[in-house]
Amino acid sequence: MTNIFKGHPGIGDEVTGEALVASDNFSARYDLDRIKGIFSRPQHKLCGQSYDGKILILNAAKGGVATAWMLQEMVSRGVAPKALILNFANPIMAQGAAFANLPMIDRFEVDITENVPNGANVKVIPETGELRIL
């Protein structure tokens, strides 16, 4: 099994943590209860689950523009994912990650949501765009 996945060089610093994985999309405003630190959108596959301190691995950035501010707000309160890993980010997610200095990588050579097991311990290396299963 491949343990190293290559994406586009990303944003932020190297980080290690537990992966929370789903094939769903992601928006901070649409999908989260940011006070409780859980997914709150009933239709989301991770509804009810905590994202706090996790390496969040999802498909694509969706929804509106609020996420660009909200990532930094989440980081400032200490209730935030450790990193965002997406098949496809959008500008909002990149702008939010850049503003919050939250590690993020996207555009992998494979569907990253199908290649990292939920709960795996992973290392995120934004500078080279690598995700490693440890």
Binding site: G10, I11, V65, A66, A68, W69, E73, R77, P91, A98
Partner: peptide, 25 residues
């Protein structure tokens, strides 16, 4: 992040910044 070659000068800006999104920080 998006491999932009350079910048483009823009004519006007429309900014979203409601206090819920901004938060205290």
């Amino acid at each position: 992040f998006f491999d932009a070659p350079d910048t483009v000068e823009i004519a006007q800006v429309h900014l979203m910044a409601d206090p819920e999104s901004l938060g205290v920080s």
